[in-house]
C-alpha cells in the first residue's frame, strides 16, 4: 500500500462507519410477520408488536429525519414545533453571550493574577473552591436571583466557561519567560506596551488553550441547562422529543450537537494556531 496516511485513515473511517450503519440497520430491522392478526388490530398495535420491528429507529429513518430537518431548518409552527436550525441558533446565541462575557472577565482578571503574586495567593482559595462546582448547581440560585430563565442559562454558561480561561490566563502570564521580560526591562518598555507587546503574545497560546477548553465545556453544559430552563434551544428540543417519544428526533439532535461542538472547537483551534509561535 502506497497511499498516504490521511487517505488510509479516511478509508478506514468510512469502513468503520459503514460497518456501524449495517449493524445498526440489521439490529433494528423487522423480523417479518410475528403474529397473525386482524389487519385493523395490527394497524392499531403498530409494527413493533406485529412485525418484530425494534422501537429504536434504524439508520434509514434517522437519515430521512435528518434530511427533513436540514431541508427546512428554520420553520416555526408554534412554541413546541420549531426547526432544528432555530433551536441551534438559540443555543449558540446563549453560549456565545455567556462565553464572551466570561472572556471579558477571565482574561483581565487572569492577567492580574498572573502578574501579581499577591493577588494570585489571595484569590487562589476562591478559585479552587468555585472551580469544581457543577455549573448546573448554580441554576436554582440563578433562577432565584435573576428571575429569568434565559438569562439564567447564560449565567450558567458564563460561570462554567470562566474557570479554565482564568486559570490558564494566570498560568500563561505568570510563566512568560524571564529573559523576554528582561529584554523589555532593559529597553525601558512601559507597562502598557509590555503587557500588550510582550506578555500578551507570549501568553496567548496558553490563553487560547483555556478558551478552547471553555468553549467545549460551555457546549456540554448548554444542553443540560436548556433541558432545565425549557422553551427554546437544542437541549430543550432533545427533552421535548423525548417527551414525544420521538427517538428518531433525539438521535438527529444528538448528531447535530456533536457536529456543532466540533465546529466550535475547530474554530478555536484555528485561532490558537494563529497565535502560536515556534520556539
Amino acid at each position: 500500500m502506497t497511499g498516504s496516511l490521511t487517505l488510509r485513515a479516511g478509508l478506514l473511517s468510512c469502513i468503520l462507519l459503514t460497518a456501524f450503519l449495517v449493524v445498526w440497520h440489521l439490529a433494528t430491522r423487522g423480523a417479518g410477520v410475528a403474529v397473525e392478526m386482524d389487519p385493523e388490530y395490527a394497524a392499531l398495535m403498530g409494527a413493533t408488536a406485529t412485525q418484530g420491528v425494534s422501537a429504536m429507529p434504524g439508520p434509514l429513518e434517522v437519515g430521512a429525519t435528518l434530511w427533513r430537518h436540514l431541508r427546512d431548518p428554520f420553520y416555526v409552527n408554534g412554541t413546541n414545533d420549531m426547526g432544528v436550525g432555530i433551536q441551534i441558533a438559540y443555543s449558540i446565541a446563549r453560549v456565545g453571550i455567556g462565553y464572551l462575557l466570561a472572556v471579558a472577565v477571565a482574561v483581565p482578571v487572569g492577567f492580574l493574577i498572573g502578574m501579581s503574586p499577591l493577588m494570585s495567593r489571595a484569590l487562589d482559595p476562591f478559585i479552587q473552591v468555585m472551580k469544581p462546582i457543577s455549573p448546573l448547581a448554580w441554576m436554582p440560585l440563578a433562577l432565584y436571583t435573576i428571575k429569568d430563565s434565559g438569562l439564567s442559562a447564560i449565567f450558567v454558561i458564563f460561570i462554567c466557561s470562566l474557570w479554565p480561561m482564568l486559570v490558564n490566563t494566570a498560568f500563561g502570564v505568570a510563566s512568560v519567560r524571564k529573559e523576554w521580560l528582561n529584554v523589555a526591562r532593559t529597553l525601558e518598555v512601559g507597562p502598557l506596551r509590555r503587557a500588550f507587546l510582550v506578555i500578551l503574545p507570549a501568553a496567548a497560546p496558553t490563553i487560547l488553550t483555556g478558551m478552547r477548553i471553555s468553549i467545549g465545556i460551555a457546549w456540554l453544559v448548554i444542553v443540560a441547562a436548556e433541558m432545565l430552563v425549557g422553551g427554546t434551544g437544542i437541549g430543550y428540543f432533545v427533552w421535548n422529543e423525548w417527551n414525544n417519544l420521538s427517538i428518531t428526533n433525539v438521535i438527529t439532535a444528538i448528531l447535530v450537537i456533536g457536529v456543532i461542538g466540533m465546529i466550535l472547537d475547530q474554530m478555536l483551534a484555528r485561532l490558537a494556531r494563529l497565535v502560536t509561535f515556534p520556539e
Binding site: 529573559e179 523576554w180 528582561n182 529584554v183 532593559t186 503574545p201 497565535v275
Partner: peptide
C-alpha cells in the same frame, strides 16, 4: 535598567512571535 546600557543575552532572548525586523524595531 536603562536604554543607555544595551544587553546581549546569552540565550539571544529574541521574541519568537516577531520577525527579525520586528525584534529590532521593538
Amino acid at each position: 535598567p536603562s536604554l543607555d546600557r544595551a544587553v546581549i543575552f546569552q540565550g539571544h532572548a529574541l521574541l519568537p512571535w516577531r520577525s527579525v525586523l520586528g525584534n529590532v524595531t521593538f
